[in-house]
Amino acid sequence: MSATALFGQLLLGLINGSFYAMLSLGLAIIFGLLAIVNAAQGAFYMLGAFIAWMLFQYLGIGYWASFVLAPLAVAIIGMILERTLIRRVYNLDHLYGLLLTLGLFQIIQGMFVHWYGTSGQPYDYPDILTGGHNLGFMFLPTYRAWVVVASLIFCFGTWYAIEKTRLGAYLRAATENPTLVRAFGINVPMLVTLAFGGGVALAGLAGVLAAPIYQVNPLMGGNILTTVFAVVVVGGFGSILGAIVTGLALGVLEGFSKVFYPEASNMVIFAVMIVVLMIKPAGLFGRER
């Protein structure tokens, strides 16, 4: 394998890593701010892709409108679930939140399998992002370039919003000490609902980005969920920057394993997870609590 070919694999790893980054970022936000291990994140990813497909199939609404509408719809569904169900387990052990969201995941996935089967639906690329460029060492499809750019913008935008803005400061304060923040006249439950909506909207956005590349399939969320969980564990549960950096890094690692030992490519991330858990249980970027 020549050096230029490896460079191509590096770029592909970054592309896949940006998907992991977006999905794990949503998980990290929800865990960091709500202390919920959201096992339904994969279902929201699948919903994002399916809503984009449905908007086109039934209403003729194209990619760019879906890029806004689908994550919004996912956020609304998520916020309704947060208000009606997830809210009730905040004061219980983490395990209850995990079980509840795992149940939600199974129900949502089961409904889509029932309605649409498992054979998958097609979704076309937006016209201006078809084709690609020959970079010399590899052929880069335009759409993949767009995926990297879009997810990096959204990832670092989210990081900035939470770590550097006043709203982000309120959010972080509300999770540290909700009673005190409420005393300042801030609507904490509303803030928490919005944070959950934002976290699942990131998954929905990743779903829309994935729709043209992969098959829009009810099972797509389940396939990626376990990997994303491993990414979050390696990065440190709740760490925003950790989720982004680890997502990209593990995407690259997985890409290389597809060259040197493809049979292990779905395991390499978990091998890293085990090593990290043994050496630094809070994750690479996590803080001991």
Binding site: F139, Y214, P262, N266
Partner: peptide
Amino acid sequence: TVFHPFGTADMSSFMLQAQA
């Protein structure tokens, strides 16, 4: 010849190998 694990969503790496 490349064997990929069941449920691999992203096949782009293998396409690059096939191209090479």
